[in-house]
Design a protein around this nucleic acid. Structure first.
Lengths: 156, 156
DNA sequence: ACGCATTCAATTGCGAACAATTAAATGTGA
DNA sequence: TCACATTTAATTGTTCGCAATTGAATGCGT
């Protein structure tokens, strides 16, 4: 009786680490990062750089702001990251002639070519997840919905 | 026909940003961080510091390594973080006398007292999640299971 | 046309996160 | 006991992530 009470209380205590969904998400993000690392090392990319490349492989020659909106990142993060990608000869940064405030990010031939080398990455992640595609899609949709509700509160 | 084909292909393309569960987790973690920030600012804590305090509020006077195992963090992250908590007079760091390699982390009276001030934080997060407790618990369990499978692959 | 707000990227400063290395303490086997 | 491996934190260097600020370009209202 005393034990079951104690157990019940602890599994409901919202101040306990293992009850917090945020820590689950936080620690899962790090776990993903560690799985990605050896795969992305072969491409010479970090995970955030890989995200930027994913955006650019879908649509090229976009302003920094567009990349930021898709990845929920600001210029303080993206400017130095994009300069590193430029130093690696994967992208070119040019001021837009129509709007001199914007910097357009375009892929170099090497940047385009890297897409092929990166083709096997998602499959490796899927394997590491040890989970059916359907389950992962369902989880992804739930997490995205939660994220969007959180972001809505921030804009409030 | 052409349109439905294109749509079907894009929703299955594993190289598309919006199809990647990892980006969902990554961006959700940042969204959580942004929701936590104003709450934790009032406590003078960052989110990782808050996690360390959650661990210490459950059990005090533990070596750095134990904290690292619970949070999946290493000394490269924890040592400077704990020094900042010490500078804020929330914890004390002392070498263990039984094993001089270990540094034991203990709460100061202020560190203990902060637990009360932090009591309302989980409730605020729950409200921002705009989601039932049961749903959050289910999601948390799924994400933890995924994280543990990923971590198992890393140890391989 | 003028003043003024807005937009966009860059910059600065701080706090993670992690790889790789170092150094000291401890444990183990011969 | 002594050599050697292991454990534990600390340190160094690189890259994110974000708040806050700056500065230039653009848009808008009068």
């Amino acid at each position: 009786m005393r034990f079951s009470m104690a157990r019940k209380l602890s599994t409901l205590d919202p101040q306990r680490l293992d009850n917090q969904i945020c820590f689950a998400v936080y620690s899962a993000a790090h776990a993903f990062n560690r799985v990605y690392k050896p795969l992305l090392d072969r491409l010479g990319l970090t995970y955030p750089q890989y995200l930027v490349m994913l955006v650019l492989w879908e649509r090229d020659d976009v302003p920094v702001k567009d990349i930021g909106e898709k990845l929920f990142l600001d210029s303080g993060t993206l400017t130095p990251l994009l300069k590193r990608l430029e130093a690696a000869h994967l992208v070119k940064r040019t001021r837009s002639s129509e709007d001199e405030r914007q910097v357009l990010i375009a892929l170099t031939p090497q940047g385009h070519a890297l897409k092929e080398k990166a083709r096997s990455v998602p499959q490796s992640i899927l394997a590491a997840s040890d989970c059916s595609v359907a389950e992962l899609v369902a989880m992804k949709d739930e997490i995205v919905a939660l994220r969007d509700r959180l972001n809505a509160v921030i804009g409030e």
